[in-house]
Design a protein around this nucleic acid. Structure first.
Lengths: 338, 338
DNA sequence: ACTCGTCTTTGAATCGTTTCATTTGTTACG
DNA sequence: CGTAACAAATGAAACGATTCAAAGACGAGT
């Protein structure tokens, strides 16, 4: 047959009522052994596959959860997505991933799409201000969980990582090494980056004689990092910072490349270097890179859990879970207090 | 209202028949201006959103295309997926991405899921042998396109890249530089890698006095590359190859890290180095890495096109499109013929 | 033989949309 | 005034699953 069989075809073939076939599929205990076998045989012979659209229509809800990320190419998000998928699978749901690419029109497109699909809920790393849209969704019974962004708990739940704490940890670590003149590399116009800087400044304020210089990079890429690195190499040695904290690992790797290539600066002896995110490349860099690890698996898993909670309480109660990042020390900041 | 309005609610509110509302949505030309405005106003007021499940059920088909990749974390696949999404969007379809993680049970899970969703078609980078399952799908009217794998055109269509040609290009380039003693790094147990090696050997056979040594790496990662790199550094200089071709960029970056860190070997003077895939990191390596670029955007786009073709001809005709990879020369193989 | 209870099976109603044969309304023309 | 031609609007049927009240089957107890 070139067409897919329906439950009715199965019923006819097995000489039972459609309700019975449905019961075999959904409540096997209600059906006698003999009938069950006959129905299952017919299903196999006809190659019957459930039509999910019909199921959803009847059920009024899908088994689908929408996830909108800023960039699937970013290991941070693909890891979160992976964890969310696994957690959802365990609950019998499926995750649809939409990539907004930091573009709010794409973001809106996916939000519309997911509404048409009647998703159970929405996980989103917002690009722009989605507050109002989330209100609308809530009114329509679609719970939303913000990912990597702290939520106003009057509005919705969220899972995020304490960026300020992460920044504090990184700077504190550098200070503990005995370094005093720090540099922060990144683009503080990004909310997460700004928080990391703030944390770093807090750590510096706690130590007398310590300072942090902000080097605004042109983006958060390896290339941008190399530019910053080159500018450091060009400085007179006594004007160089003793330690550099980059707001992500790509930047740090770029800085590292400049410094090691030109061979005038040693890592960590002359400049200690730390990044953020702990991507896979960090450990396998020329000088293994210290970093701040974010619990991506926990983020994804918790996002699904919070969604389940909202479904239970009817979307009336919201909760903001904040994870604490973790310092990972490697060779780029090795060495005792100097 | 906390419940979503249906087309019936809209009809009542606008005082028209349900068919009219449907026409406003699908065939605006059939409806008079006055009525249209009234209906649109009601839609806005009630916050009506189409129920896609009902639509699909009636239509008998979804607007969805399934894509199963080996690893979304891999830039190669995320780039292909991105391109496929864009092409599908232009056709009014949506791509659902499933990550098999090289596990055939996960692969099977997604295939089942996509069948229940009544996808328009399936794009897949197969893990195991999916020939039979594809036959079944074809019988049921679900066209399939193999991605990054050559298909038997009696069975289905495919888009792939000529790996042997890519290997040939890389080796030829190294030979053109005047290098004679080449080394190939990779794990030839992977089909794609084996083809690249074969191509390299063909190029070597064309030049008298040229040779290629195969260094089987433990995986295709940066770490595996560094191990190979270390073993090269340990060799007596005269036993080292004059050029190294790695079966992917991660390996090449690992090799590069070993060689540059130990500072006894210069790239490209002592050893010319080339990778494969041209990932973003290649250009921003310590020594910008030459590589073989695969047309990921074209792969994704063409996959969607082939699917559309199959839908047109009813899945009776299949076509295998093979792309040619492209040599990208950077500093790691710079320098005139020796 | 009759009733009661339990287990199985039945089939009509329902979900929200699209489709399409019909009906209704309007205009133009002889 | 009659009617042909066309445009617009109608509403019932269909898609395929699930649900659930009702019917049927069967054995046990009296």
């Amino acid at each position: 047959m070139s067409q897919t069989a329906s439950i009715k075809d199965v019923a006819t073939h097995a000489q039972v009522a459609v309700g019975t076939v449905s019961n075999v599929l959904n409540y096997p205990d209600r059906v006698s052994q003999r009938t069950k076998e006959r129905v299952l045989k017919s299903i196999a012979e006809l190659g019957f596959v459930r039509n999910d659209a019909a199921r959803q229509l009847r059920a009024g809800q899908s088994r689908t959860i929408g996830l909108i990320v800023l960039d699937v190419g970013n290991p941070f998000f693909s890891s979160v997505a992976r964890a969310a998928e696994d957690a959802a699978t365990a609950l019998g749901s499926v995750v649809l991933v939409g990539d907004s690419g930091q573009d709010s029109s794409r973001e809106a497109h996916y939000m519309d799409l997911f509404q048409e699909q009647r998703v159970q809920g929405l996980l989103i790393s917002p690009v722009g201000d989605v507050g109002e849209r989330i209100d609308t969704l809530r009114e329509r019974g679609v719970p939303t969980v913000l990912v990597d962004e702290l939520a106003d708990t009057d509005r919705c739940s969220s899972v995020s990582v304490d960026d300020q704490e992460g920044g504090y940890l990184a700077a504190k670590h550098l200070l503990d090494l005995g370094r005093r003149r720090l540099a922060f590399v990144g683009t503080p116009s990004i909310r997460q980056v700004a928080s990391r800087l703030k944390g770093a400044q807090r750590a510096v304020a706690e130590v007398s004689g310590a300072s942090v210089e902000v080097l605004d990079s042109a983006g958060q890429t390896v290339l941008a990092g190399r530019q910053v690195g080159n500018s450091l190499v060009e400085r007179a040695p006594e004007l160089r910072p003793e330690a550099v904290f980059c707001s992500n690992d790509l930047l740090a790797l770029g800085v590292m490349q400049s410094l090691t290539m030109l061979r005038t600066v040693r890592i960590p002896e002359d400049i200690a270097l730390i990044g953020y995110d702990d991507i896979d490349f960090a450990i396998s860099a020329v000088v293994p890179l210290s970093s701040i690890r974010q619990p991506t698996e926990a983020l994804g898993r918790t996002a699904i859990e919070l969604l389940a909670e909202e479904q239970d309480n009817g979307g009336t109660k919201h909760r903001a879970v904040v994870f604490t990042p973790e310092l990972v020390v490697r060779q780029s900041t090795a060495g005792s207090v100097g």
